[in-house]
Nucleic acid binder design. Structure first.
Lengths: 159, 159
DNA sequence: TCTATTCTTGACTATTTTAGTCAACTATGT
DNA sequence: ACATAGTTGACTAAAATAGTCAAGAATAGA
């Protein structure tokens, strides 16, 4: 279980755009340089964010991307859905679609657990807004920062 | 984000063993038939569970696998760690290991969020025991069961 | 002891997903 | 018109996952 690089990248790109609201727009190339993400990949991700209505774009000279909505109304859950389609894929989905035979003795006794987990993850990510990320003191990337940081005080908002 | 089939399978195999405590042991072949999982794959998974000390095995005729510990002291978190190595892989791990350049403007402002999420997931899975799964009314596999089920009443135990 | 049973080991292959690339095109400002 | 910059979809490469295989070692029962 992990966060995909698309989601990680999307979150970082959105964070940059949130911090760049004073500027009219930021070009994909500039975002690529700032976040050290392959330019073509940046374009691909931004396009998905645009189609999901999370960012706006302007072509031509001086064009680029900008947040479509205020940072407090954009959540990580929305960002993740924009680039991956869903936050958490239920295991049983593949069985439902007839791909496999779902008959087994423990008849999905565990599936409620996965569903609860999925709900937990979704509600957490839907509770973290871009604004909260902006306010966060950027922690140094590394295990050392995990314990000492003053962050992580966000709570989950049920939906 | 999803649950891998190894973890799903491992959980189901453990559930069967938990329900079969009256029997001395259950063979891999029988487990394979009961849960409709490829026999060789079952062996592979059980071996990991054994190495993690979650199950015991006996060879020869009448041999097979059995729970090494009582169901209430085995959690989904332990099962997942046994087959996958870890529950949640932090995104920044790969950066830490020098694989990539970690310098970017938003200097892991989001990483505390991923860490919090990982902690949430781990503490949830470490709070669900095999015994709880046994008690769960097996829900029919499918979206229909998601809303109506009487399950999902488990709470997270902090660790 | 011989044999069938069943776990053990590690390497191998196939499939799927993820990550990243590319080329051709369209819109816009100067 | 021309340079800048987003748009589109197809393509490839790499990695992770899922599943297979074959040869071996322990054990129970005949």
């Amino acid at each position: 279980m992990k966060i995909s690089s698309s989601t990680e990248y999307a979150a970082r790109l959105m964070a940059v755009l949130a911090r760049s609201q004073s500027e009219a727009s930021v070009s994909a190339e500039r975002l690529s340089a700032l976040e050290n993400i392959p330019a073509d990949y940046v374009n691909q991700i931004l396009l998905k964010l645009k189609r999901a209505g999370l960012v706006e774009s302007r072509r031509g000279q001086g064009g680029g991307y900008a947040l479509a909505r205020p940072p407090q109304s954009v959540t990580l859950g929305q960002i993740m859905r924009a680039v991956e389609g869903r936050v958490f894929e239920d295991v049983c989905e593949k069985y439902e679609s007839g791909e496999r035979d779902c008959r087994h003795q423990s008849r999905c006794a565990i599936s409620p657990v996965w569903r609860k987990l999925a709900a937990l993850v979704e509600s957490y990510l839907d509770g973290v807004s871009l604004e909260q990320i902006m306010e966060e003191k950027p922690a140094a990337c590394g295990a050392a920062a995990a314990g000492t940081s003053g962050g992580m005080q966000w709570t989950t908002r049920p939906h």
